[in-house]
């Protein structure tokens, strides 16, 4: 948590430098610090469509650059970026159309072969694909990106209660779908 606070302070200082000092190098540092997670978020949202995710990530950072004056520090900079990225994703989804239900097997193919417990990974991936889109999105942000429920609610512009219920329901479904793995899941040491 202390690390998180220190990171947030560094981000705020860089934002101030980029905004007040009009310093592109400060923005470049922010970009380098956050591009990895924003791109990971978008790749997940786009079910592994790397090219489209990177296009949206670029759009996200260009928007962040233009809207930097609107960042008021109420949320962490990373959370603010996730919110912009999610808005870009929604806008792009309205324009184009990504398959909502049939991406399961394709997404499962993106599990790196070198990882341990590949079967378990693929089952988790398939189980995730069987959740509703809202449950997947909430679990991505709450668990995989490590945001709090409040932050997830901010990023997705979704009421806090809805975020909590999607998270609880999604986990309960995953628990039921992955019940067969439970005895072994404890033994697996996944890095």
């Amino acid at each position: 948590m202390a690390d998180g606070d220190a990171e947030a302070r560094i981000d705020r200082a860089l934002v101030a430098r980029a905004r007040v000092g009009d310093d592109p190098r400060a923005f470049e540092q922010l970009l380098r610090r956050h591009q990895g997670m924003v791109r990971a978020q978008l790749r997940r949202l786009l079910r592994g469509d790397i090219a489209a995710a990177d296009d949206l990530a670029q759009e996200t950072f260009l928007l962040a650059w233009r809207k930097l004056d609107q960042f008021r520090g109420e949320a962490r900079f990373s959370t603010w970026l996730y919110r912009i990225a999610y808005a870009c994703f929604l806008q792009a989804r309205r324009k184009r159309s990504w398959a909502d239900d049939d991406g399961g097997d394709e997404a499962a193919e993106h599990v790196p072969a070198a990882m341990p417990a590949v079967d378990l990974q693929m089952d988790v991936e398939r189980a995730m694909q069987r959740l509703s889109a809202a449950e997947q999105t909430v679990l991505l942000h709450c668990v995989q990106l490590g945001l709090s429920h409040d932050e997830t609610s901010y990023v997705l512009a979704m009421p806090l209660g809805t975020v909590k219920s999607h998270a609880t329901r999604g986990k309960a479904k995953l628990n039921a779908m992955l019940a067969a793995w439970h005895p072994r899941a404890g033994e697996e040491k996944i890095p």
Binding site: E28, L31, R32, Q35, G36, M37, R39, A40, R43, R44, D54, A57, Q58, V111, P112, A117, L120, Q121, V124, E125, M128, L139, V143, Q144, L145, K171, L174, N175, L178, W181, A185, I190, P191
Partner: peptide, 19 residues
């Protein structure tokens, strides 16, 4: 379930010229 989901998440993408 959290542990499984976190393990299944690939983590941050490497920059590779993106920035």
């Amino acid at each position: 379930i959290d542990a499984l989901l976190r393990a299944q998440f690939e983590g941050p993408v490497r920059d590779e010229g993106f920035s």
